[in-house]
């Protein structure tokens, strides 16, 4: 007997409202499969990879790992705000952004996993710290709400420029993931820019905190736009774009928000980063310890 059938009891009205996923008759249905329209789901990519319809090259897999890890670590950070945000509306908003990022992470990691017949969970839960490829920006702690918004502001403007260009990738899967992600990240830009304006133009305290937040986050902006051999090869093949090529649009668009807020662009030296080579901030180890603890306690288990 399925849960669908067992719930058909005489409880008044219950049958009427029990229209969940089980009704579709898909036994592998899950919450994340309910996506409006024909949007690309991580499960679709995993299926394509399993059936051999899509397989990344070694370079593309490494590149997908970078983007997937950025989004995964950020989702892990943002998820902490749920039940702790300044206002219920922000619990919902930050939760939404976290969910979007987690969705992108799952898509990129599912694709990257196709290189060696692994799964998204193998990559998320059973890699060690130096095997992660996230940039330091994404690993930065939430801090207060202003630090989170500063991080979110940089991330969303960077990701928008990146995904916008990746929709033209010669790698069809990267292009498809980017096409879905860019629409969502566009909302993230709006959310973060609005909060930057509000906090800078709100009270003396919020202005001070927002400026401090930018000072804390800005050193990690530099790493996002550094090219290396991988990105150069992929850019030449038309599969990816050189990170440095995003910088002008990023500067211009973030600059417009700074100008509207009547704020100087932070002048702080960039940190060297190193996440793409597996050299991480001190923070990542703690993030991974918490994220991986349960999965590693039960290796091989299914959830």
């Amino acid at each position: 007997m399925t849960p669908e059938q067992t719930e058909q009891t005489e409880t008044t009205g219950h049958g009427d409202i029990s229209v969940g996923v089980a009704g579709s008759g898909d036994s592998s249905a899950s919450a994340t499969r309910i996506t409006p329209g024909n949007a690309l789901r991580p499960e679709d990519i995993a299926l394509e990879v399993r059936t051999g319809l899509a397989k990344p090259t070694e370079d593309v897999a490494e590149y997908a790992l970078r983007l997937g890890d950025d989004a995964l670590i950020l989702a892990q950070r943002l998820g902490h705000w749920i039940s702790r945000a300044p206002e219920l509306e922000e619990d919902v908003a930050l939760g939404n952004i976290a969910l979007d990022q987690l969705g992108h992470a799952r898509s990129f990691l599912s694709y990257a996993a196709g290189l060696n017949d692994k799964t998204e969970d193998d990559l998320a839960y059973f890699r060690r710290e130096h095997e992660f490829r996230s940039a330091h920006l994404f690993e930065q702690p939430n801090g207060d709400f202003a630090v989170t918004i500063a991080r979110q502001f940089v991330v969303s403007y960077y990701q928008f420029e990146l995904y916008r260009r990746l929709t033209e990738s010669t790698d069809a899967t990267l292009a498809a993931i980017a096409a879905k992600a860019v629409k969502e990240v566009d909302y993230h830009r709006d959310h973060s820019a609005q909060w930057v304006l509000r906090l800078v133009g709100g009270t003396d305290e919020s202005r001070r905190r927002m400026i401090d937040g930018f000072k804390i986050i800005w050193p990690y902006v530099g790493e996002l736009f550094v090219d290396d051999e991988l990105t150069t090869r992929l850019a030449e093949a038309g599969a990816a774009v050189e990170p440095s090529s995003l910088k002008a649009d990023f500067d211009r668009l973030t600059g417009e928000v700074f100008q509207e807020a009547e704020l100087e662009v932070p002048e702080v030296p960039f940190a060297p980063g190193g996440g793409r080579r597996g050299q991480h901030s001190e923070h990542l180890g703690y993030v991974l310890a918490e994220m991986q603890v349960l999965a590693r306690e039960h290796p091989g288990a299914s959830w």
Binding site: L294, A301, W303
Partner: peptide
């Protein structure tokens, strides 16, 4: 949330 054992 932070310790959920699979990404799904």
């Amino acid at each position: 949330i932070s310790r959920a054992p699979s990404l799904k």
